[in-house]
Design a protein around this nucleic acid. Structure first.
Lengths: 227, 227
DNA sequence: ATTTTAAAGTGTAAAAACAACACTTTAAAC
DNA sequence: GTTTAAAGTGTTGTTTTTACACTTTAAAAT
């Protein structure tokens, strides 16, 4: 057995999660940020966060915290990095684990967001954030871009059914560069896990655009590394 | 100011670091593992780890822990992931941040390693490890491979000066696949930050092989993502 | 009924990157 | 001077990526 002293001679710290919540609307990525009407750092902008509770995993804490703010329970989420500088929170020592989440911006619970005094802010207009939250956003964006470059996580920012124009606009926003329509569609056509639903979206054009969906059964992750 | 209760109503946990220490010898990657002659889990295999102390960042704790075992202070290290399941350590709740380190296996301090009852184990022969350390190793290997595929971190596993044959053998070990000698050398030749030193290594062949080194001044990270 | 409009949809050719492939050179050891 | 074993070196075919502009469609306006 482990001697009690093995653990007890060492300090304990608060552990928190901070969530970088991405949305997509009108061709732009945005973040859900709190304008804090509570302490500490009242009046400043921050990420949504919370403390990890007894018996709760850090992953579960991140899901709880995002659900408290958005009302959404089954989001795509991924751990980004852990921030462990002793003075990162000026109040007390808090080790914080950052997660990013991808939200279909049509679906979040507006009342909850308003109640938290939270706002969707377009990425280029993100204000200075408290503590190391600005660094967290940079790291999360880099990591989300990486993941979006190797697997179709970006689709979690769109409705279940989406047009190819929507999809292209999304990827242009994620990678910050415009893409050739024909080349983009050729690439999508080669992905059998993105399939036509047969339905047509008429909201964006008179002609109508074919709706597609992601088929998870046809998607098999592949990881091939090269130097 | 932050009300005291803001923090104090929340629990605190032990925070530890666990280190996946990679070495390279005889064409194989290996890990430095402890055969634990101490509690908890005496007699089992584990990663080198330790608790984060007051006033110490998690990064600093990881460096300290690796230095305690190897005597080496300036290793390439990178945070991998944080493991926060409430029952991951059967003794008490411990949130653990994993880091990987790359060691030039010629340089570590043998006395320290022996004193810790630690051994270099070739990757395919890694035994079952305690707690979630096996998962940590898988995650670290995947992440190290990814990093090695986008930047020349692998070079930290070699001496300052190395031959192209050594470098190719290293990458073959990292990616688990053999590579064409001419294509490999063409790629290296296109990397101006890997430069000939003018010296020759005579230990591996009568003819001698040119020695190369990494020139950090010529290396500029580039990150371009594509879908 | 015809014309206008605005987004959806479509193919080809050049360039670049990657993959496959085998012999020559060198210097020490015998 | 012959042998040995690793170091070193180019070309060609294939695949992938990029650049580029017009046609189709269906509703709205006339």
């Amino acid at each position: 057995m482990a001697p009690k002293a093995y653990y007890s001679i060492h300090p304990k710290f608060h552990v928190s999660v901070d969530c970088i919540i991405f949305g997509f609307e009108d061709g732009e990525l945005s973040l859900l940020l709190l304008k804090r009407n509570f302490e500490p750092a009242r009046g400043q902008w921050s990420l949504m966060g919370g403390f990890v509770e007894e018996g709760e995993s850090t992953d579960a804490a991140a899901r709880r915290v995002v659900a408290e703010l958005t009302g959404l329970n089954d989001l795509y989420m991924s751990q980004v990095h852990t921030y462990g500088a002793p003075d990162r929170d000026p109040g007390e020592r808090v080790v914080s684990v950052a997660y990013y989440a991808l939200v279909d911006i049509k679906k979040y619970n507006r009342e909850l967001v308003d109640a938290h005094n939270a706002f969707w802010v377009n990425l280029p207009e993100v204000p200075p954030l408290i503590f190391d939250h600005g660094t967290m956003v940079e790291d999360a964006l880099r990591f989300m871009r990486y993941q979006a470059s190797v697997k179709p996580v970006g689709i979690n920012l769109l409705p279940e059914e989406f047009t190819l124009t929507q999809l292209q606009t999304l990827y242009e926003a994620i990678f910050g560069q415009s893409m050739d329509k024909r080349n983009f569609r050729k690439r999508i056509a080669s992905m059998d896990y993105i399939e036509k639903t047969g339905r047509v979206d008429k909201t964006m054009s008179r002609r109508g655009a074919a709706l597609y969906r992601f088929n998870p059964d046809k998607y098999h992750e592949q990881s091939i590394f090269k130097i």
